[in-house]
């Protein structure tokens, strides 16, 4: 049995992005699914050369977001309609998604806001920089404490292509 904390590092093309898994402790996860709908998030990370900022947009299913906040705050009910609860979601995202530039400590992303779009809630963050980043490290543990079948996908747009990082369980779902 290995006792080393599990940490994976993968290089993305053009050497511009590196993925680092969160440094937590390993144990076998078992899965549970709510019958019909899979639990996924999709995060887009892109450099905006007009504003000189890394823009981060998280697409979260509203029900999953509600469930995560209910669990985190140990409450049976929580609606995302009040602005205060949208701020709670923003705070949750800040705690479960991090981005580091050039291997430094995770940057403090500016929270831009929260927006509803159909059955999704979009959370916007950005990081203003003086120069385009040469290397980005990302960690994403959104909803993994709620759904053991959670799959988080992060698409990092670099000029000419999109690189995809998956923060997921690779096994089948029950």
């Amino acid at each position: 049995m290995s006792t080393a904390p599990k940490s994976a590092a993968r290089s993305l093309s053009r050497g511009s992005c590196v993925y680092l898994a969160t440094l937590l402790i390993t144990i076998m996860l078992v899965s549970r699914s709510h019958a019909h709908r899979a639990h996924h998030t999709l995060t887009s990370v892109a450099w905006n050369s007009n504003t000189y900022a890394i823009e981060v947009i998280h697409r979260l299913h509203i029900q999953d977001a509600v469930r995560a906040l209910q669990k985190r705050h140990a409450t049976a009910h929580l609606s995302l309609q009040p602005v205060r609860n949208q701020a709670l979601l923003a705070l949750y995202v800040e705690n479960h998604f991090s981005l580091s530039v050039e291997n430094k400590t995770p940057a403090t992303l500016d929270m831009v806001g929260v927006e509803f779009a159909g059955d999704e809630v979009l959370v916007y963050q950005e990081l203003r920089l003086e120069d385009p980043p040469a290397e980005v490290s990302i960690s994403c543990t959104l909803f993994q404490e709620v759904f053991d079948t959670q799959v988080n996908q992060v698409n990092v747009s670099i000029p000419g292509s999109v690189q995809t990082l998956m923060f997921d369980k690779t096994g089948a779902l029950p």
Partner: peptide, 14 residues
């Protein structure tokens, strides 16, 4: 055939 995820966490659900 269930596999563990990328992160080393275990939830209360698990």
């Amino acid at each position: 055939s269930l596999a563990a995820g990328e992160s080393d966490i275990v939830s209360y659900n698990a």
